[in-house]
């Protein structure tokens, strides 16, 4: 039985095997490092002593989990060790995996049940994390599942962002609602939602401009977009996905805090996991904000977006 790495992959899907392979490959780079470290730690530590635990804490920090999260995990493991519940490295590994998974899973919000189409998904995040690319891939993802989708080019700020999204729309056969560069993002959102409502489109994916969470004015704009959406569809946006670059360090926490404040983030998309970055900041964010990771981006292709599975993520992170 093949352990599905990242969640509900359709067994009949002819692509499932290749996706699986690609995910393995993508995550293995992440894995190598932490796994390697961990093996070193575990090899040394026949008995789980303080040095081993401290080394482990440092290893978690090296994966961008952050000091607070790493300390908490280590403290929990220390408690277990004191009560002699950890006898060897294998047990420590299993326990560590469970800890990470439990953090990723706490208070996971169930996806909203949409009463009537369209479901509105807003993509937010700082500059350069991959919002436009993810929007395009997400549209393709829904299309592949037989849903109708509409892209809304609400990044009217960055040069050629609209053209970029348009190419993605063409690739996945999804129509896009646009305005000119420099136009009002709320206005184009309004148009897109009107159109989607009339056409009974299943999903509207809203690509917003990248903005640093410290820019108060730009953050207020997101709030305004939310209110605009609510005027047309009362319970919209149903999902607000924070697109987070897996290379992001501890600043990711601040991003999650402030974007949640202004835009009501409901979940995270972890992008660029095909690099060497570990994306450990997602664990730190889940710990503080109880935000689930919804998708993982693993490449520049149309199908390089996968639903996220915390068990698999935690496991693959620790596999040697």
């Amino acid at each position: 039985m093949i352990q599905t790495l990242f969640g509900s992959l359709n067994e009949e899907d002819p692509q499932s095997l290749s996706i699986l392979d690609r995910m393995r490959k993508a995550v293995s780079r992440t894995r190598d490092n932490l796994g390697e470290h961990l093996d070193n730690v575990l090899a040394m530590a026949r008995a789980i002593d303080e040095t081993a635990l401290e080394e482990l804490e440092m290893t978690l920090i090296a994966s961008d989990l952050g000091v607070a999260t790493a300390t908490e995990i280590t403290a929990n493991l220390r408690e277990h060790a004191k009560r002699q519940q950890i006898r060897d490295g294998a047990e420590l590994r299993e326990l560590l995996k469970d800890q990470i998974r439990a953090i990723l899973d706490q208070n996971t919000r169930k996806p909203v049940v949409v009463s009537a189409p369209p479901e509105v998904i807003m993509m937010v995040g700082v500059n350069g994390t991959g919002k436009t690319t993810t929007s395009g891939k997400l549209a393709a993802w829904y299309r592949a599942r037989g849903k109708t989708a509409l892209l809304c080019a609400a990044d009217t700020f960055r040069a050629a962002a609209i053209e970029q999204l348009e190419v993605w729309g063409q690739r996945s056969g999804v129509e896009m609602i646009r305005t000119k560069q420099g136009g009002d993002p709320s206005a184009v959102l309004f148009d897109a939602l009107q159109a989607a409502k009339t056409r009974q489109t299943d999903v509207v994916i809203v690509d917003t401009a990248g903005r640093l969470h410290t820019k108060t004015g730009l953050m207020a704009e997101l709030d305004k977009m939310r209110r605009t959406a609510q005027r047309i569809i009362p319970d919209a946006p149903h999902e607000v996905l924070l697109v987070l670059d897996a290379t992001t360090g501890q600043n990711g926490l601040q991003q999650a805090r402030l974007f949640t404040e202004s835009a009501g983030v409901t979940g995270i998309v972890l992008t660029k996991l095909d690099g060497t970055a570990k994306g450990g900041i997602a664990v730190a964010i889940a710990r503080e904000m109880q935000l689930p990771v919804r998708f993982a981006g693993i490449g520049e292709g149309l199908n390089d977006l996968l639903p996220f599975d915390s068990e698999a993520f935690a496991r693959s992170l620790l596999e040697a």
């Binding site: 961008d64 700082v126 290379t247 992001t248 360090g249 501890q250 690099g275 970055a277 570990k278």
Partner: peptide
């Protein structure tokens, strides 16, 4: 390089 980069900065 992005100022927000974490531990992976050294590798890239």
């Amino acid at each position: 390089a992005d100022a927000m980069t974490g531990q992976d900065a050294v590798r890239s």
